[in-house]
């Protein structure tokens, strides 16, 4: 187990390096010199040269990359071009609110998807199943930003039930207030996952119900409810772990879009403004962190999977 984790962590390094090289190249080969963000028209050539050296913008792109990498390994992601604050600090300030949003919507999607999937699989081809299926089709097809706009129009602008944007009411410091702000964004963010999870739980339920152990349980007189919760549900949860890992990208992407619609003060909003103002160090730091979240999430999914399914562990011992 330890070896496996170690191996996976070692495997993460080339991915991170490749992504960093790739984004570094895009940013630095794009038209426009990043130095333009720092200089004023009245500066002399020498002054510009000094700033250039200060920022590590002199030398070839390879040298620049190496300089950047060295700093990153020391935990220094550079300073933002706009606010002149350290990039790492700013990102870590915003990280909790993004993780809060992502976590809430993930839990929400699991809670909603499990009963939907089980019912849908149990009542295969019945009316309930068809209704749920159409809903999950809509869930995977709906553009999240549009869904967000529609919810804002209905629940914020017309019914005034929920706030339109932000994370807190100014001057109010309570958990309830944050929860109140969290409702709409987390619903929007979870819709895609609800649909995807429901699909897989449904199809798994159908295959599991055909297994012989279900027949055995039935013939022993185990009530249907117990068969569903005790046997089928357990076996359905396994693939959910894998799918959740695979779907993590949509959570990261989704939070990016949804944060900018709802003005949620998280990494997405930060990243969007960084991209719009071409804040290069910020873009780099932000990309690396998103990538890290994805990779670590996938690793956790893989680990959970083998912990949850003892058959896998045994397979290797043999």
């Amino acid at each position: 187990m330890k070896n496996y984790i170690l191996k996976r962590i070692v495997q993460m390094i080339p991915v991170l390096i490749l992504v960093s090289i790739f984004s570094f190249m895009i940013i630095h080969l794009a038209p426009g010199d990043p130095i333009n963000m720092y200089i004023r028209p009245d500066m002399t050539e020498e002054e510009i040269q000094i700033i250039r050296e200060d920022l590590g913008l002199d030398g070839t792109i390879v040298e620049q990359y190496v300089a950047w990498l060295k700093n990153v390994l020391r935990g220094n992601f550079g300073n933002s071009v706009i606010t002149h604050q350290p990039v790492a600090d700013q990102i870590f300030n915003k990280l909790p609110s993004t993780l809060l949003l992502m976590g809430t919507s993930f839990v929400l999607s699991i809670i909603i998807a499990i009963p939907l999937g089980l019912v849908s699989g149990m009542k295969k081809n019945k009316l309930v199943d068809q209704v749920i299926s159409i809903f999950s089709y809509i869930g995977i097809s709906i553009p999240s930003f549009w869904f967000a706009l529609m919810l804002i129009i209905v629940f914020s602008l017309n019914l005034h039930w929920f706030p339109t944007n932000g994370m807190r009411t100014i001057g109010v410091e309570s958990v309830l207030d944050v929860v109140w702000h969290l409702v709409l964004p987390s619903i929007v963010l979870s819709i895609d996952n609800i649909a995807v999870f429901t699909r897989y739980i449904r199809s798994n339920t159908i295959t599991q119900l055909e297994e012989e152990y279900v027949l055995t349980a039935k013939s022993k007189g185990v009530p249907k409810k117990r068969i569903m919760t005790g046997h089928v549900l357990k076996n359905c949860l396994l693939p959910i772990i894998t799918i959740a890992g695979m779907n993590l990208a949509s959570l990261v992407t989704g939070s990016f879009i949804i944060e900018s619609v709802f003005g949620w003060p998280g990494m997405g909003t930060l990243g969007m403004s960084a991209i719009n103002s071409r804040d290069y160090p910020m873009i780099m730091g932000f990309t690396m962190l998103s990538c890290l979240i994805l990779i670590v999430g996938n690793l956790i999914a893989d680990l959970l999977y083998s912990v949850a399914d003892p058959r896998i562990k045994q397979g290797v011992k043999r």
Partner: peptide, 11 residues
């Protein structure tokens, strides 16, 4: 598969 592709597309 493990890169935040939408983000890179935006960039």
């Amino acid at each position: 598969m493990s890169v935040p592709s939408f983000l890179l597309i935006i960039i």
